[in-house]
Amino acid sequence: MRITLVTPAAPGSKSGNRATAERWARHLRGLGHRTRIITEYEAEPTDLMIALHAWRSVDAVRCLRETHPETPLIVALTGTDIYRFQQTHPEETGYSMAEADALIGLHDRVGDDIPGVLHARLFTVFQSADPLPRRLPPVRSRFDAAVIGHLREEKDSLRAAMAVRELPQDSRLNVIQLGRAHNEEWQTLAEREDASNPRFHWKGEVPRWQVRRYMARVRLMVISSVMEGGANVVSEACVAGLPVIASDIPGNIGLLGEDYPGYYRVRDTHDLRTLLLRAERDADFLASLQAHCEARAPLFTPESEQRALERVVNAACGQYG
């Protein structure tokens, strides 16, 4: 079958949407399909379209329905689709969601935040991650925590940096931030924080192999987002056995589980600081975070993701015999 994946992220982009499109294309080729990834759809015939992003891909969805109305359509919902654009751009976002024969959510609580009429078409596809070659010994003189992702509003990117500004003298907590600034404002904020906060180090955008090396060496990861569709970096941490401290938003709870002990109140610097200090000082607490993450790891294997994609494709195409 010919499958067209539409993503707003151009070739070479390091955005999550592009990485997801390329990974899904590999999985679908492994199932015997012919795949291509495009950023703009121009009415070319295809046997199935997968649109990554309901709002940003609405033009492609409209074009498909106007020119090839019988072609099955799958729409993958991002965090901004679910938690922003349903409210700010309801007509376009709602159109893509309503026209889809199947919807993909990247965490298992998406159904709580979309219209009930769409629940029968919703499938969860957890994003997969490859295991690290090996864990590296941590820096003994510091308790390093990583924050991984582009610096932008949705990520509340400097929350961990703020949490380590005022710590007891004997704390070894240190935050390493990886990712480029979304705009000049975030660039300035990160540079100022790096210059004024001795416990914060912004590395900017680094190659993928360096990200994985940091993940192999740091003691934990912080994901401080205010909205997430299901961050792949959480999958990567679980597969790596890397403890996570996460904001208590649906996108994190839908990946780590209701009973995960490492949540803090979103945007609450004091609450995050308390958990970071507990992780540094309480070995049993840190071990419990790691054990919970490792228990979730089987959800995030490439084989699991491929099987989930196969179920969605079969469901979307089943309506057409």
Rank of each mutant, 00 (worst) to 15 (best):
residue 180 R to V: 06
residue 154 E to A: 11
residue 219 R to P: 05
residue 153 E to F: 11
residue 200 F to D: 01
residue 219 R to G: 10
residue 222 V to K: 03
residue 158 L to P: 01
residue 207 P to W: 06
residue 181 A to C: 13
residue 167 L to M: 08
residue 216 A to S: 14
residue 199 R to I: 04
residue 210 Q to W: 13
residue 215 M to S: 01
residue 177 Q to R: 01
residue 174 N to W: 08
residue 194 D to F: 05
residue 209 W to E: 15
residue 175 V to G: 00
residue 207 P to D: 09
residue 219 R to C: 08
residue 193 E to V: 03
residue 207 P to Q: 10
residue 178 L to H: 03
residue 176 I to P: 00
residue 208 R to K: 12
residue 202 W to A: 01
residue 206 V to S: 05
residue 201 H to Q: 08
residue 177 Q to N: 07
residue 170 D to P: 05
residue 159 R to I: 14
residue 162 M to I: 08
residue 214 Y to A: 02
residue 215 M to W: 02
residue 182 H to V: 07
residue 171 S to M: 10
residue 204 G to N: 08
residue 182 H to I: 07
residue 168 P to M: 07
residue 182 H to M: 09
residue 202 W to M: 02
residue 170 D to A: 13
residue 161 A to F: 06
residue 210 Q to A: 14
residue 183 N to G: 09
residue 191 E to D: 11
residue 165 R to Y: 09
residue 191 E to T: 15
residue 214 Y to M: 07
residue 154 E to F: 03
residue 218 V to I: 11
residue 161 A to S: 13
residue 201 H to A: 04
residue 164 V to S: 02
residue 211 V to Y: 04
residue 160 A to T: 04
residue 220 L to P: 06
residue 214 Y to I: 10
residue 213 R to C: 07
residue 194 D to K: 03
residue 170 D to T: 14
residue 216 A to Q: 05
residue 191 E to L: 14
residue 217 R to G: 09
residue 187 Q to T: 14
residue 161 A to T: 05
residue 212 R to T: 04
residue 178 L to V: 09
residue 154 E to K: 11
residue 216 A to P: 06
residue 164 V to A: 03
residue 208 R to I: 12
residue 187 Q to R: 15
residue 187 Q to F: 13
residue 164 V to N: 04
residue 153 E to H: 14
residue 176 I to E: 02
residue 176 I to A: 02
residue 195 A to R: 14
residue 169 Q to T: 15
residue 185 E to F: 06
residue 207 P to E: 06
residue 169 Q to D: 13
residue 220 L to R: 04
residue 177 Q to F: 00
residue 187 Q to D: 11
residue 216 A to L: 07
residue 163 A to W: 08
residue 195 A to L: 11
residue 187 Q to V: 06
residue 201 H to M: 06
residue 212 R to Q: 12
residue 155 K to P: 03
residue 157 S to Q: 02
residue 154 E to H: 08
residue 202 W to N: 00
residue 211 V to H: 03
residue 203 K to V: 04
residue 185 E to G: 10
residue 201 H to K: 07
residue 210 Q to L: 14
residue 205 E to K: 02
residue 177 Q to S: 06
residue 203 K to Y: 04
residue 177 Q to A: 04
residue 204 G to P: 04
residue 203 K to A: 07
residue 220 L to S: 07
residue 208 R to A: 14
residue 192 R to Q: 15
residue 185 E to T: 09
residue 193 E to C: 06
residue 208 R to S: 13
residue 219 R to H: 12
residue 160 A to I: 05
residue 159 R to E: 12
residue 185 E to Q: 09
residue 152 R to S: 11
residue 163 A to E: 09
residue 168 P to R: 07
residue 221 M to I: 04
residue 201 H to G: 01
residue 166 E to R: 14
residue 178 L to P: 01
residue 164 V to K: 00
residue 218 V to A: 00
residue 161 A to G: 15
residue 183 N to M: 07
residue 218 V to Y: 03
residue 161 A to C: 10
residue 175 V to H: 00
residue 218 V to Q: 00
residue 213 R to A: 12
residue 156 D to A: 13
residue 220 L to W: 07
residue 175 V to N: 01
residue 190 A to F: 10
